[in-house]
Design a protein around this nucleic acid. Structure first.
Lengths: 346, 346
DNA sequence: TCGTTTTTCTAGAACGATTTAGAAGAACGA
DNA sequence: TCGTTCTTCTAAATCGTTCTAGAAAAACGA
């Protein structure tokens, strides 16, 4: 079976290789009857169509867009936000009959030549949740691979699809301020390892993720008089929110509101409250970010961003030559639900 | 910047192309000093290392394994089961500095030449939740791409990593029978479109997914005297379970136990019960399959299978030449939790 | 009927690397 | 000193396509 190439088929049919190639790629360049004869012979010989690598080399199109992912894939995909984004991206990819290439970034030997970012055959790449300045980005850049990031960037020649994180958070902050909250705990899904089982309190300087930083800034901007404390429960978003909230709820110094930097964390916090017999919106206010599907049934106040659209927009920017915009700001919207209520009088 | 190839670098340094190639791939084939000089010049010229497609063509290794996925990506990844599998697979992929290629299967024009399965440059592929007999599998087969499936197969020359679905389900069936259940509703995550908003009752002949079929068989085997009814709430697993359970709970003919063919569906069912003030394990028994992370906190009785290990095993089989086994049966284990209890006396 | 356009097909040169076989020189043991 | 073995490097073939330019034949308009 192996070793059957364009040439084999061409010889068998008695035509040139170019014609066989055209039979597959440009059907209107040859007569229908000949095309049929070629395809039939190909099938007979067990020829599966033009070799992917050869085609990619010659035509300069790999037919795949890369998606970098850091750390544990499981963590990345346990957040519906990531899944929604990917779904939007996949939709556009399918439209252009392109595959998605998930490229693991081994944080360790990224510099050594043997890694996926270096060797993956891709036409473009989506930068999703990768810190700017990561060596992988440099590699993509030298390789001359166009990228689109989901992080709001100041750099004028970078491409991105993002939301105004600060503004989004400010809306939520103002909402909370309006309700009278002055003491807020922010649940952070910290990238850095936390210490064992219990949550830890962080300083503002500990925040590594740029988006997180911006959201915290925005919150503070919306409620300048409030005291913000940062608490992390570790990697995994839901568990992180749960642990973080447990820590906060069981402490002497309870806040009147808990904000998860993602909905999943906020839902974790609601779970912790439920266990303790507390009702969100009455005993304590809880809010999140993103408005993932699970937020509505849970009655979670949050800041909506069009997740799937974001993925689609990135896909378009990467794949559609007709899309000329290089920087898109997506709208956000405060969604008030039952989980937020007035701060109790002291 | 563009147009810098191996040759350019070779000429600049004053060596042959082969030597530059060796500098990247076989460092011990040339003196350290020359290698350093080559790498330095390459950097200077903005050469990003050997072109991925060219290397793939010449060496016959694409450096990527494919993962087929049907339907909507979002649905696929909304199930932690899929995420866990992928995480295991990704772990091994990273080990072999290989990328994962997500290949959408547009169920429609799969036959027309323009699709990812046809054109993706991959060395091997994992078949995850794709019905045997799907045209995409034929394409992979003619392309000569080795595949490993997660479906238990009878075919002796196919490779798979799977669980004994029938046996797993039988264990659960026996457990339920022991508790006295004789009237069971099975929640099916039906691939076929369901009618609008409400759940539908299915016949055994409606089950298209092979795994589902096996599990149903196994359940019946474990509780031969029980009446099994099949109910589907549509695509998305959680919503499907929720809708299915709502339908069942609000009907005249309530069963004493509800089994979700996946944990996510079972959790959906528990949600429906909670809304109605019913307690799982007391008012009604609920059980699932897979033992996803969320199952334990929810107290869900289920049949555990080593999800991540399954992904890892598939990865090994695909990538590690040292792995010679072609068919691996993973163990399963009944995990009894609070959601299952004795059937109420009538 | 004759020039012109359109259709249909082909030869041969890329695409950018890796590989094979082997040459030139250095190092070595006796 | 000589034959042998390493080390270090090279020339040329090859991987399987697609692309460019153009030839031959068919169709067309006047």
């Amino acid at each position: 079976m192996a070793g059957v190439t364009l040439k084999t088929v061409a010889k068998a049919v008695g035509v040139s290789a170019s014609t066989v190639s055209n039979a597959y790629n440009k059907p209107d360049q040859l007569s229908a009857s000949l095309r049929e004869r070629i395809l039939a012979t190909a099938q007979e010989l067990g020829y599966a169509g033009p070799d992917a690598s050869a085609r990619a080399l010659r035509s300069g199109k790999a037919g795949a867009v890369g998606v970098l992912f850091t750390d544990q894939l499981a963590y990345a995909f346990s957040d519906p936000y990531a899944v929604g984004f990917l779904a939007g991206l996949a939709e556009v990819a399918e439209e252009f009959s392109t595959s998605l290439m998930l490229m693991p970034i081994s944080s360790t030997d990224i510099v050594g030549g043997s890694n996926a970012v270096q060797h993956a055959a891709i036409d473009a790449a989506a930068i999703f949740c990768v810190e700017s300045g990561h060596p992988a980005l440099d590699i993509l850049s030298t390789r001359g691979i166009p990228t689109v990031s989901t992080a709001f960037g100041e750099h004028p020649d970078l491409s991105w699809v993002a939301i105004d994180e600060v503004d989004a958070a400010r809306k939520l902050g103002e909402h909370l301020a309006r309700l009278g909250h002055r003491d807020v705990v922010v649940l952070v899904d910290d990238k850095a390892e936390t210490v064992g089982e219990t949550a830890v309190e962080l300083g503002f300087e500990d925040i590594v993720c740029a988006d997180c930083d911006l959201r915290i800034q925005g919150l503070q901007k919306g409620m300048p008089d409030a005291r913000l404390r940062l608490v992390s429960g570790g990697h995994n978003a839901f568990a992180s929110g749960l642990k973080g909230a447990e820590y906060v709820l069981d402490s002497q110094d309870r806040p009147t509101a808990i904000v998860g930097l993602s909905d999943v964390q906020a839902l974790g916090a609601m779970e912790a409250m439920k266990v303790r017999g507390l009702t969100a919106g009455r005993d304590l206010t809880v809010a999140g970010f993103d408005d993932i599907p699970a937020a509505e049934p849970a009655g979670l106040t949050t800041v909506r961003q069009p997740i799937k659209d974001k993925g689609r927009a990135v896909g378009r920017m990467l794949l559609d030559p007709a899309s000329t915009e290089r920087q898109i700001l997506m709208p956000t919207q405060l969604v008030v639900r039952a989980s937020s209520g007035p701060a109790p009088k002291r």
